[in-house]
Design a protein around this nucleic acid. Structure first.
Length: 428
RNA sequence: GCGGGCGUCGCCAAGUGGUUAAGGCAGCGGAUUGUGAUUCCGCCAUUCGGGGGUUCAAGUCCCCUCGCUCGCCCCA
């Protein structure tokens, strides 16, 4: 235990990977801008009760996966395991809902105390969308389309959209009763997990991966049959909307979503390239949540997208490592006075927008040129005591086709030390 | 929380009980004291995730522990 290292399941994002993340984040921002969705940022830490009430006591997320502790004021606090509850809390707290419907997005780390595996960490990152105050089926379509287009815009392909309707809360309650009754009569044929869920969260039995359970379920009453006519019609409108946008989907009657607050539309976007954790984006409608958390009854739909999983997919496409962007200029400098002047000179260029790598090693010119070459810079700037005495900087092209062997002095240009604009002009 | 696989230098990696732990990449220094290829030379693990045990002798065997990883559960 001598070595200090990050906590289990909390990983560092090293410089080789941050460019890819930045690209994903920038693309997401752009898509939200186009769809007129505004960013909201909420604290990472919330009162435990928010999640207990919002997500549901019976869910695994609340029951066994939360990072919860008591603070110095004896309050129970929890690191957010997902974003929706916080966003809704914030919207209620600040009266956003009385200002009309809200189109919000958020991004950042979430925490769930689980065993890490491929595509799953204890601290992971989500980007999420919440449309609050929208009841029309078209808002379901719009929400899904934003996610779909965002993923497409990033160049991810091979994705599948799975769709289901959980119906209204009444439909769901009615179906739940029917399903439990049917399964209880056959509980001896259920695996242990499913038997436990019969009391805790029976709908989850539907997406059991146990083949025997799935075979048994083939004869069970279906959620689709339990939908009231209005719910069914609503679901058909959502499907028609997706078809109009030419977004392919497949109905999955066993898609149930783990969190209590979902109703009507539920969907997942999955990839077969991700191993066991195939869901890149998941979401659905949660008409009851705002009211449940003490706000005005507000229909809503949203989704969350798993950044790590998305980056995993993108990494497969374009290779995990992206070289850092090379500097415009690498400053080779040596000698006390020249080094001092180089520092001033380099800063001046940076203030004018150039990316400048200043060699601070004080090592031999040969070494510095080697590093200049490796930096990928197109130009080296040489500032030694000789140049300083003449009041100039020697600019040498490093990538010139005419000078692939790096002949000393070939193609060099002298610019006055004081004339920064000349440098910028030369490099342009 | 449960099960499988794995843990030798920043990265890759040899080593399957016997004296001083190969090698490659990267890095650093030098040959080349003001100019980037290549090449050459040197440096870079008192130690094999950690702790205990067996043995004359352990990176190599046993136990425990930590971590990584894949899967279950669940989810993004």
């Amino acid at each position: 235990m001598e070595k200090l290292q990050s906590l289990r399941g909390l990983v560092d994002l090293l410089p080789a990977h941050t460019p890819l993340w930045q690209r994903v984040e920038a693309t997401a921002r752009e898509h939200f801008r186009r769809a007129q969705v505004d960013e909201i940022r909420t604290p990472l830490l919330e009162a435990t009760e928010l999640f207990a009430r919002g997500i549901g006591e019976a869910t695994d997320v609340v029951g066994k996966e939360m990072y919860t502790f008591t603070d110095r004021g004896d309050r129970s606090c929890t690191l957010r395991p997902e974003g929706t509850a916080s966003v809704v809390r914030s919207a209620i707290q600040h009266g956003l809902l009385s200002q009309g419907p809200q189109r919000l997005w958020y991004g950042g780390p979430m925490f769930r105390y689980e065993r890490p595996q491929a595509g799953r960490q204890r601290q992971f990152h989500q980007i999420g969308l919440e449309l609050l105050g929208f009841a029309d089926p078209r808002s379901d379509v719009e929400a899904i389309a934003i996610a779909w287009d965002l993923l497409a815009g990033l160049g991810v392909d091979g994705l599948a959209l799975e769709l289901n309707s959980l119906g209204s809360s009444d439909d769901r309650a009615r179906y739940r009763q029917a399903l439990v009754g049917w399964l209880e009569a056959r509980s001896d044929q259920l695996d242990a997990d499913s038997q436990a869920r019969l009391v805790s969260n029976p709908l989850r039995i539907l997406d059991s991966k146990n083949p025997g359970t799935q075979a048994l379920l083939a004869g069970a009453p279906t959620l689709a049959d339990a939908l009231a006519p209005e719910s069914r019609q609503r679901f058909e409108q959502v499907q028609a909307g997706l078809q109009a946008l030419e977004i392919p989907f497949q109905l999955n009657p066993r898609l149930v979503r783990g969190l209590d607050y979902y109703s009507h539309t539920a969907f997942e976007i999955t990839s077969s390239q991700l191993g066991a954790q195939a869901t890149v984006c998941g979401g659905g409608r949660y008409d009851g949540l705002v009211g449940q958390l003490g706000g005005p009854d507000t229909p809503a739909i949203g989704w969350a997208l798993g950044m790590e999983r998305l980056v995993l997919l993108l990494g497969q496409i374009e290779g995990a490592d992206h070289a850092a962007r090379p500097p415009d200029l690498y400053v080779v400098n040596r000698g006390d006075a020249a080094e001092a002047a180089a520092l001033v000179w380099a800063r001046g260029l940076r203030q004018r927008g150039l990316a400048v790598d200043l060699d601070a090693s004080g090592s031999a010119f040969g070494k510095q040129f080697k590093r200049a070459d490796r930096s990928g810079a197109a130009w080296a700037a040489v500032l030694g005591d000789g140049e300083l005495a003449d009041g100039v900087v020697r600019l040498k092209p490093l990538r010139s086709d005419q000078n692939p062997e790096g002949d000393a002095g070939a193609g060099e240009q002298l610019v006055p030390l004081a004339d920064l604009a000349a440098v910028i002009q030369l490099l342009a």
